Computed example of a mutant assay.
Amino acid sequence: MPKLSVIVPCYFNEENIPVTVSGLISNEANFPAEVSFEYVFVDDGSGDATVAALRREQARYPDRVRVVELVANVGSYNAIVAGMEHATGDCMSIITADLQDPPELMMQMYDYWTKGFKLIIGNRQDREEAGLNQTFAKIFHWLMKHLALRNIPDGGFDFVFFDRQVCDEVVRMQERNSNLFYLMVWLGYAYVNIPYVRRKREIGKSRWTLQKKIKLLLDSLLSFSYFPIRAISVLGLGLGGVAFLYGIYIIGLRLLGGSGPTGWTALMVVILFVAAFQMVALGVIGEYVWRGLDAARRRPLYVVKQYDGAIK
């Protein structure tokens, strides 16, 4: 009898929890009777009453709802890894706590899983929300598709359905400062792509700040693309070529008896430009070095405070 584990990262989702649990339980009716379910909710160090709301739902559905409470906020991707480590299903899905992604799509994903596909992606064909969020998302996924992973679907995704084998591989890697969903694609399994329209958030306020979005963009590019380092190399060679030609020009003028360019303004402009490039280059290299140091430390991705009420 197949078991489906649904992993739900939670961060300041107190008001969403009852609606989300109810929606997930109702969605079970779409599946064959032989499928069993568990819902692994991971509280990512919320500062509100999210944990209390989860405990109430766990009391209502003790055979289905599991609660992993983390000691501190470690980011949604690390929280998802915590959920994956505690999940026991044969297949799994990750869904947001605000139900912007439609749970009913899981049944179609499950059908593909029974046909042998180990990764099924629900990608955002469009969004009901507009404004800066939509603009940033389009830029983010365009950069990732053209500079990092060309085999990812258009529109981006964070609603996935995957096999136990994919889960074990991702958990085993313990990847830091990366993009969990792109990592699943990077593994190389053939996947099915199901487009859908992402719903507008109806309850609560998103905690996905601009700072977190920029960090995710940097983490994703630096984890899956050598473009930043290659761009520095190409630009450095270009500047070196320009400097060499300019040097030949100056030497030629001197040999022909002419006077070289006078004034220090042009010289200062060149020096400042080269110095600025060097600082940018050091910054990019520093990002890679810091990520290497962070991985070398092998600090835990998260620390569990309680799991199903048991203190860790």
Rank of each mutant, 00 (worst) to 15 (best):
Met268Asp: 06
Val185His: 04
Glu202Asn: 10
Val160Pro: 11
Met107Leu: 12
Leu132Trp: 01
Leu282Glu: 11
Val197Phe: 02
Met279Trp: 06
Ser36Leu: 01
Gln100His: 00
Tyr196Thr: 04
Asp219Asn: 12
Leu301His: 07
Ser46Ile: 08
Tyr249Gln: 09
Ile203Met: 11
Pro2Ala: 07
Leu119Lys: 07
Phe162His: 08
Ala29His: 11
Phe244Met: 05
Val51Trp: 10
Arg64Met: 10
Ala97Gly: 14
Cys167Trp: 08
Lys138His: 14
Ser233Cys: 09
Gly286Leu: 03
Lys213Glu: 14
Phe181Thr: 09
Val8Pro: 09
Ile203Pro: 03
Tyr288Ile: 11
Ser223Met: 06
Ile214Ser: 05
Phe273Pro: 00
Ile95Arg: 08
Gln174Gly: 10
Asn16Cys: 11
Val166Gln: 12
Leu237Ile: 00
Asn193Met: 08
Phe273Gly: 06
Arg172Tyr: 14
Leu105Tyr: 14
Gly155Arg: 02
Asn179Ala: 11
Thr262Glu: 11
Val160His: 00
Ala310Leu: 12
Ile229Trp: 05
Lys312Met: 15
Val303Lys: 13
Thr262Ala: 08
Asp154Leu: 15
Asp163Pro: 14
Val51His: 06
Glu128Gly: 13
Ile203Gly: 13
Asp126Ile: 01
Gly252Met: 04
Ser259Trp: 01
Ile139Pro: 02
Cys167Ser: 14
Val67Cys: 09
Thr50Glu: 13
Ile121Arg: 14
Val40Asp: 05
Arg164Ala: 15
Asp43Thr: 08
Asp294Ala: 05
Glu15Arg: 15
Ile311Gly: 10
Ala281His: 02
Gln211Asn: 06
Phe159Asn: 02
Ala148Cys: 04
Tyr249Val: 03
Val42Ser: 05
Leu217Asp: 14
Asp101Thr: 09
Tyr110Val: 08
Ala97Ser: 12
Glu38Asn: 04
Ala310Lys: 13
Trp186Ala: 02
Phe12Arg: 07
Thr262Gln: 11
Asp90Glu: 01
Ala281Met: 00
Gly131Thr: 07
Val197Trp: 04
Lys138Phe: 12
Arg198Asn: 03
Val40Lys: 00
Ala310Asp: 12
Gly156Glu: 00
Leu237Arg: 05
Thr135Gln: 09
Leu24Cys: 05
Lys215Leu: 06
Val303Met: 15
Gln100Arg: 06
Ala190Val: 12
Ser225Trp: 01
Leu70Thr: 07
Pro102Leu: 00
Tyr246Gln: 06
Gln108Gly: 15
Lys145Ile: 02
Gly286Pro: 01
Val40Ala: 03
Ser22Met: 13
Leu237Ala: 15
Arg254Asn: 00
Leu187His: 12
Ser76Ile: 08
Ser259Gly: 12
His141Pro: 06
Ser178Glu: 00
Gln174Met: 07
Tyr182Ile: 05
Leu132Glu: 12
Gly116Thr: 12
Phe37His: 08
Val160Met: 11
Gly155Phe: 01
Val71Ser: 14
Lys3Leu: 03
Leu4Gly: 02
Gln278Tyr: 01
Ser46Lys: 11
Lys118Met: 09
Val6Ala: 07
Gly240Met: 07
Asp158His: 11
Ala275His: 02
Tyr112Lys: 13
Arg164His: 12
Gly83Trp: 01
Asn78Leu: 03
Arg172Thr: 10
Ala33Tyr: 09
Asn123Gln: 09
Met84Arg: 09
Asp154Cys: 13
